[in-house]
Nucleic acid binder design. Structure first.
Lengths: 232, 232
DNA sequence: CAGTGGTCTAGACCACCAG
DNA sequence: TGGTGGTCTAGACCACTGC
């Protein structure tokens, strides 16, 4: 039977429709790729692409020999874009500002060492800076850079360009992790962000590696009212 | 020239390596698919798959006729899994508990209506509940359900099963949005979560639609110390 | 071990868009 | 308008895994 679905987006839409319409309910086994290809009148490759896409977005579970099933608890996946802060601000039609507050070689506290998987004794470059949007405090950045991995960072001009952008252009990374949480503002954070201590602040912590070499670990404390949103 | 890269993952790794090694620097134009296929000794389809994958993860920018370029500011994309809370807790080897606190038909406040893109006058089902991990408060859930879109929800047994799970199984959605922020605990939230008012809490807000029909809007206030993490 | 998805190939046509 | 990526096809072989 040829229903005339000749491209993979079309097949994906039709499969989605049937899942929503409960033709294939959660836990159900779908026909094989070959059967669907025959029904839709297209090549198996096309069906494969459609089903693979749906599996990647978490709606289907595929196993060789076992076949393709509709997952029982669709774990929705949201994709967050982690932009360079300057671009994030400029996209809101605000002017970006940046101020370097401090820059020292220091022995990092234990939690930073642990996050970067480094052992004690290594001195790291410690940077504190402030990002501004239209002159207002936007986020406070507390960053540690592994100078053993990125020695050029010692000579970098970090007065005019944020460490974030310098690293993006000069120290590529292969993997990392990111975490989000909420904290009460310390006195220092409150003063820098122009608010009162105790106010709830949104925090982003990110560490990156090149292979298994730690590059940098950064903690971004956002100004009150910060909201991170995305579509699902 | 055949360098023996015969599968798309291998091609992807090699292209990645060259980007990291600055063979192709940010902004540079890559060879065409056909040229790369010749160099790697594989079919163009294979190169296409590799480059398409890298473009999807935000490292390459591809345009017909213009060719493939390394992006200047690699916007890293983090994929968050939004799990059913019960599963999230059980994955930590803790026992899941759930308590329905209130269930009323009510006229929602303006901000909820706006979030769901509904107009005034519609009564919605308002649910408040508490999620527990090993008996300790884990998150406070404040949910509105559009009964016009999901009339069966009026008869659902929401004492034993959380609304989240009931909806996952009974009211599929096609799209939605999700937002994260930080708030200071209100007196009510503090009492329910076993903490003091004013403590910084992590908040997740999510709204879902089936086509353009609003299904539900939920606000999840997490217990102190909540951390959401993922790899990038 | 046999059935299923995963992938590769060579060739083809098409859509888009920069020059 | 020509060059580039986007996709489809038919056929093939392979890898995994449930039975």
């Amino acid at each position: 039977m040829d229903t005339g679905l000749r491209n993979w987006q079309g097949v994906r839409e039709e499969v989605l429709r049937r899942i929503h319409a409960r033709v294939w309910a959660p836990g159900d086994l779908l026909p094989t790729e070959t059967e669907l290809a025959a029904e839709f009148g297209c090549a198996r490759t096309t069906v494969n692409r459609a089903l693979r896409t749906l599996a990647e977005s978490g709606l289907l579970d595929r196993k060789r020999k076992a076949g393709t099933r509709v997952v029982r608890h669709p774990v929705r996946k949201a994709t967050l874009s982690i932009p360079v802060i300057r671009l994030e601000i400029e996209k809101q039609n605000k002017s970006y500002g940046y101020a370097l507050l401090s820059r020292e070689m220091e022995t990092p506290p234990a939690d930073v060492l642990a996050r970067m998987c480094l052992r004690k004794g290594s001195g790291l470059l410690h940077l504190q800076s402030l990002h501004l949007a239209d002159g207002q405090p936007y986020a406070f950045e507390d960053r540690w850079i592994n100078t053993a991995a990125v020695p050029e960072s010692l000579d970098a001009d970090l007065e005019s360009m944020s460490a974030n952008e310098w690293l993006v252009m000069n120290a590529p990374f292969t993997n990392g992790d990111i975490a989000f949480s909420a904290v009460n503002a310390t006195d220092q954070e409150a003063e820098l962000l122009g608010t009162q201590s105790g106010v709830a602040l949104f925090v982003v912590e990110r560490s990156t590696w090149n292979g298994n070499v730690a590059i940098t670990s950064v903690k971004l404390v956002c100004a009150p009212g910060y909201r991170m949103r995305t579509d699902i």
